[in-house]
Amino acid sequence: MDTWSASVARDFAYREGWVYLQSAGAGLAFPGAADAAGQYYRDVALLGCDAQPRWHRPLQGARQRAARLLGVPEEDVEFFRNTSEVINLAANSVAWHRGDEIVVLADDYPCNVLPWSNAEAAGVDIVRVQPTAPSRREQQVLEAITPRTRIVSVSHVHPWTGTMLDLNRLGRACRDVDALLVVDGIQALGAVPVDLSYVDVYGAGVFKWLMSGFGTAVGVFRERAREALTPIFRSYVNPAPSTSFNYAAPNFPGLYVLDATLEYLDGLGWSNIYARVDQLAGEVFTALEGIGVGSITPRDARAGIVALEDVGDSAAVARELQQRKVSASDKAGRLLVSPHFYNTSEDIARFAEALADTLATPR
């Protein structure tokens, strides 16, 4: 084991003898996370309200680190409660005109579909694209964009097929018709490089690939979005005419954790992290081929999630894998595996062996 891998292995003390392949559900916390969260409460216990300068430091640190990670100005980055809040803020801040169109994928995660339903009362048409295959998702969205399109709302990585979309390609198509591209990035941020050059609104909770717990999300509203939208929520942070969508205090304990986690991940090196996720996802494909199991996820449009083809009763298979000390996901009637950089090639081999044994066992 190389030095980098050995260091990572020491930092993630998952249950001994188990294999964890559910980072798309919740990432493992690194050891410093607990102390970071506790530090907020120690600060407040010691100083009360006078601790405000202390709790604003991790806010600024997390903003700076997130801005660097996403390649955007710091003023574009704010923090919200979850991905759904970011998408809902965008969806309810548009001045609609009858005949406008919103393009979504019908099988996408609910936070990319449901927030736009209020617009229908204003005479807006919601174009619900029914993807015919995972490899066709991106092209079918492009084909649905028309001069009437005001918004395209998608997941960067589809949570149930693992398919990754090309945001630059979609964003350029949106610019051609003066539409905004709104992106749910929760299954991408921390697993793959993210380029927001043509993205207008981006939301990503931090409890999955950024391993920083629930209650905090990165929200990015680019200048183009701030010019086109009027914030639906106003409070002491963003009184009119502010164009900021941040309206109240963020989750400060969560930001202590996020700042510490991003510092840790910066130290590991994002290029190393992305390369390891890509390597391990590739090994999952190879291992599946070796035991005669197919995958739904397109190999050339993947991130960290690999969705398996029909394995029968996926819930039963997931339960039997648990009996073999392998933790995988059963979602939307599919078995999903999602290795992160803290996994190893040995973990993938253990998973493949356990899956082969499970499928060979009469149920």
Results as ranks from 00 to 15, higher is better:
residue 303 A to I: 04
residue 220 V to S: 02
residue 204 A to D: 08
residue 264 Y to A: 08
residue 314 S to H: 11
residue 212 S to T: 02
residue 301 A to F: 01
residue 283 E to F: 08
residue 260 A to V: 08
residue 291 I to P: 02
residue 276 R to D: 06
residue 279 Q to N: 09
residue 235 S to G: 15
residue 191 A to M: 06
residue 241 P to G: 13
residue 233 F to D: 10
residue 223 E to K: 07
residue 217 A to R: 08
residue 241 P to M: 15
residue 292 G to V: 12
residue 202 Y to Q: 07
residue 238 N to S: 11
residue 191 A to K: 08
residue 189 L to V: 15
residue 202 Y to W: 06
residue 187 Q to C: 02
residue 231 P to H: 08
residue 293 V to T: 05
residue 220 V to Q: 00
residue 306 V to S: 00
residue 189 L to W: 06
residue 300 D to G: 05
residue 186 I to Q: 12
residue 287 A to S: 11
residue 288 L to D: 11
residue 258 L to W: 07
residue 213 G to Y: 09
residue 252 F to Y: 13
residue 286 T to W: 00
residue 293 V to L: 02
residue 225 A to R: 10
residue 192 V to P: 02
residue 295 S to V: 10
residue 263 E to F: 00
residue 222 R to Q: 09
residue 222 R to C: 08
residue 286 T to Y: 00
residue 272 N to Q: 14
residue 234 R to N: 11
residue 215 G to L: 03
residue 231 P to F: 10
residue 281 A to P: 07
residue 238 N to T: 12
residue 260 A to K: 12
residue 252 F to E: 03
residue 261 T to N: 13
residue 245 F to P: 03
residue 302 R to V: 04
residue 215 G to C: 07
residue 206 V to W: 08
residue 196 L to Y: 06
residue 229 L to F: 13
residue 185 G to N: 09
residue 201 V to D: 12
residue 202 Y to R: 00
residue 269 G to D: 01
residue 301 A to D: 05
residue 311 V to L: 12
residue 278 D to G: 07
residue 263 E to A: 12
residue 259 D to P: 02
residue 271 S to I: 01
residue 308 L to G: 12
residue 243 T to K: 15
residue 262 L to V: 11
residue 220 V to N: 06
residue 213 G to C: 10
residue 187 Q to W: 09
residue 277 V to C: 09
residue 299 R to Q: 04
residue 293 V to P: 07
